[in-house]
Design a protein around this nucleic acid. Structure first.
Lengths: 255, 255
DNA sequence: AGTAAACACATTGTTGACAATCTGTTCAGG
DNA sequence: CCTGAACAGATTGTCAACAATGTGTTTACT
């Protein structure tokens, strides 16, 4: 019923850790059409196949996935909650686009929230959760040795995600995972720096150590610094990217 | 076109400050049906006319407001983003219901976020914004003298809202105003304590003073304490409320 | 030639009918 | 009497057509 023959192959491993998968194996017949295409549109946006700032046509999207406009609208509504899409009445939906200043605001907010998550995690984390975190660190080391950059990205998302989970604060989780994380992933994906992971993983290790020692204050501090590093990196790339876009536009205006 | 003859009279003054109104006077023909009933359902939930935890029937809601299920579903989707409603696929929507622990989590998150807002506001607030805040304090004093409890509530919402605005961080604003505030208002409305405002207004004054003196650290501290007071208050009322509900249920089960 | 109103087109908002799924009940079996 | 499966009813998900609104173009006027 759903067109799967597009170039947009599933690739839902990328979000497998963000949303708890119910079934153990392939969950072909997912709960609802809107949810199914939601994931696909998400990855399209995050990868930049739907560029930041571009207009989204409901009908075109619906036809692309072989469904009607109803579920498409629902998916867009959810994407709006995830900050990946901006909608205005009677005008339509656009892919979100951040100015440099807004990106900094976003990172500042993230920094505060994940700092809070660290502090909570340090006092509430269970031995199992801690073990999972340490497993993850080992995997990241292994991936680093192999030069597997994709898993490094994935692992980084997982690292932050697990700490947020360990915080045990449902509203914090919802705010970060349901609200901010997708937008962060989008800019991280499109503005990532391949040199970062080496240092980032070392920082991860120190954060986990602090949490293991139940030192919430330190863990929070380290996390905030860690995120600040990421912010600087992404900011530079975004400035570069926007400069290119501006240059292209002026060229187009001349001709 | 829209049934206005229900007992649910408009009463949208209550949210007039949360959403910037475009037109200067009566905006009868609002942008979209979904947005119109959204406000009405919001107030129904906040006032407890739709009780916490109760099931929401799409068809019934649609008929109540004389519209079809389409816009109703959209409104429910928005309410889900505002945390006032919980939806699960193929099952339906329920009015959100917090346990005591979740309420504490919510307040903890709010505390951190509004602390951040204070710190930002202290460094970024404009003279105009500061003047508006001080006007508001004066109004609250006047309302207190008259014993106008309704305006006190409204003024409190506005107080926090204006500080959040003054923070200048768009994502912080969206997270608090678009995400958490409605749920907070719901529990505040249903669990409010009439004695609080006297002290609360004094706390407000000190926070504004700290912001005016550009002392972000102090403003943040005072705000977090202020919110902690509110939390304690609401928590006690919620425990009481839930005890009553539990008692009623056991009675019902016996008969 | 530049500006503003009027038009046509495209797109979104809304509706009612139909399909798929869940929930609660009934009925059979142990 | 209790447990479990089949059934019926209700409710949500999806669809396609229609209405309302915004956007861009054309055209008339200064």
């Amino acid at each position: 019923m759903l067109k799967q023959d597009t170039t947009l192959i599933s690739d839902d491993t990328q979000v497998s850790h963000l949303h708890k998968v119910k079934s153990t194996s392939s969950d072909k017949t997912s709960t609802t059409l809107a949810d199914q295409i939601l994931v696909q549109i998400q990855t399209s946006i995050i990868k930049g196949e739907l560029p930041a700032g571009s207009k989204i046509n409901e009908q075109a999207l619906a036809e692309k996935y072989g469904i009607s406009r109803g579920p498409t609208r629902e998916a867009l509504h959810t994407l709006e909650r995830q900050r990946l899409v901006v909608r205005s009445p009677h005008v339509g939906a656009r892919v979100a686009q951040l100015t440099v200043s807004e990106l900094n605001d976003l990172y500042q907010l993230r920094s505060v929230l994940e700092g809070m998550a660290c502090e909570l995690a340090a006092s509430r984390i269970t031995p199992e959760q801690l073990a999972k975190l340490e497993d993850l660190l080992a995997c990241q080391d292994a991936a680093l040795a192999k030069g597997d950059t994709y898993f490094q990205e994935e692992g980084d998302v997982d690292f932050h995600y697990q700490i947020i989970q360990a915080s045990g604060n449902k509203h914090l989780q919802e705010t970060l995972v349901g609200g901010l994380y997708h937008l962060l992933r989008m800019y991280r994906y499109q503005c990532t720096n391949k040199n970062r992971p080496v240092k980032a993983i070392a920082e991860h290790r120190r954060i986990v150590e602090a949490i293991a020692q139940r030192d919430g204050e330190l863990a929070s501090l380290l996390m905030r610094r860690h995120i600040e590093q990421g912010r600087k990196n992404t900011e530079l790339r975004l400035i570069e990217l926007q400069a290119n876009a501006a240059a292209k536009e002026t060229l187009a205006n001349i001709s």
